[in-house]
Design a binder for these strands. Sequence first.
RNA 1: GGCCCCAUCGUCUAGCGGUUAGGACGGCGGCCUCUCACGCCGCAGACCGGAGUUCGAGUCUCCGUGGGGUCGCCA
Length: 483
Amino acid sequence: MSQPVRVRIGPSPTGEPHVGTAYIALFNLAFARRNGGQFVLRIEDTDRERSRAEWEAQIIQGLRWLGLDWDEGPDVGGPHGPYRQSERLGLYREHAERLVESGRAYRCFATKEELEALRAEQKARGEPLGYDRRSRDLSEEVIRANLEANKPYVIRMRTPRTGQTVVKDRLRGDVVFDNEGIDDQILLKSDGHPTYHLANVVDDHLMGISHVIRAEEWISSCPKHVLLYEMFGWQPPEWIHMPLLRNVDKSKISKRKNPVSLDDYRRRGFHPRAVVNFLAMLGWTMPDQREVFSLEDFVREFDFDRVHLGGPTFDLEKFTWLNGKYFREVLSEEELTDFIRDAVLGRDRIRALVPLFRERIELGEQFIPAAEYFFSGAVEPDPTLLTPKKRSLQELGPALDGLAERLDAVHPYEPEALEADVRAYTEEIGWKPRDFFMPIRVAVTGRKASPPLFDVMAQLGRPLVRRRLKDAARVCKNPPRAG
RNA sequence: GGCCCCAUCGUCUAGCGGUUAGGACGGCGGCCUCUCACGCCGCAGACCGGAGUUCGAGUCUCCGUGGGGUCGCCA
């Protein structure tokens, strides 16, 4: 008799909807559906500094775009709510205290600064990094005194110093860790918020999660989770760690090296069904080797035994081929028509451009040629147009390159913020706005005349602007021979 | 560096002791064709290394090597 299948994903709303999140969501969903179970969306917003409501909304929107629907979540409710960890704070505190009372955890009064100093020292001496358990055995008196003095503290788990902890991973078998190497993990931060480790275990238990399907990066902290289940006296879920998506250089997939936001793909015109199909074939294959298949097919055939553990490189070229395959063979002409209309031309898209071009055109037929660079990927800036008045192309290249990097961090991606940031950057590199802004315009639009630069950039969007700045920087370095 | 995971064409992968090591993307060549695509046909291209187990190892074991993850009051 096995318990009902309940799985979950726990994205943290600290950035744009990530392909990795979609990847893990897809496997959770497939497993749940295949086994008649439930799929839960839980928002893990325990990082007070970085979590934002708008990211949460975007993540939900991104997953919905892909059709990866959940049975319970902050937006749809359910019997195990609330589904936002920031609304469950009391629960975590309660459970942490329970562990303190039973001696399985303890209060630590070391400050962040002390710990940083400790790490620096350990690093200097070439010792292994980690907490030195200085507060593990404080006397009752000291603890009481600190408490009375209102000293801030965290709650740490009292990890056993000997023995081993075994993670029974569905895909790898038993993974054994010496307890000696597991540190006294912080469970409750001094701001009263839980860390991932506590919140996860408490919620997974309370929400009746039967299988934890998550990325491999979690495997090294999994023994802490196993230990927590033991400390609470709970039955742990089954652990399933999926391979990590990789950049072309094999490192963990990252924004720096690969488009990582679902929005990037949506904006570039990937069809959601192709996105799902592509993600499903990273580390997984159909029994008959078929490469083009629907979410329904995937669910029908899903089996963890067909997961390949080597971390797959995210191959944009093959992804693009697959998307083309959807255009020409999978979608009907009706479906493709609607897709192009909505996703590429989109009323909203045109609506956003109208204010920029209203004053610049007089006939409807002029709109497309005027706004052409909003509808093309690359613009191939002419080096002559690109060359700044008082500077050389050699100077411009690195400047544009640096700007591209810099703009990764602008938030929100709106005219005001963009202008502030570009101006600040211009000053930092010692350029005059009048010398720098024109080359940026040419890089981004391919032309010397356009609506106001920052409005244009905001409308083009982060990925496209980044790409065009990079392209232009390349042109500066290697100007094509004239003629 | 400690701990942990992983390892088949450049890339995604099939393979679950006996195969000419198969498919897909990409590359190259050809066919189709008013062009370009698509489509079709073909070519090149891989078992990381070494021991062991076995009649027999890409498949099992061990040791190397390589890659990755993780060592945060981030998740």
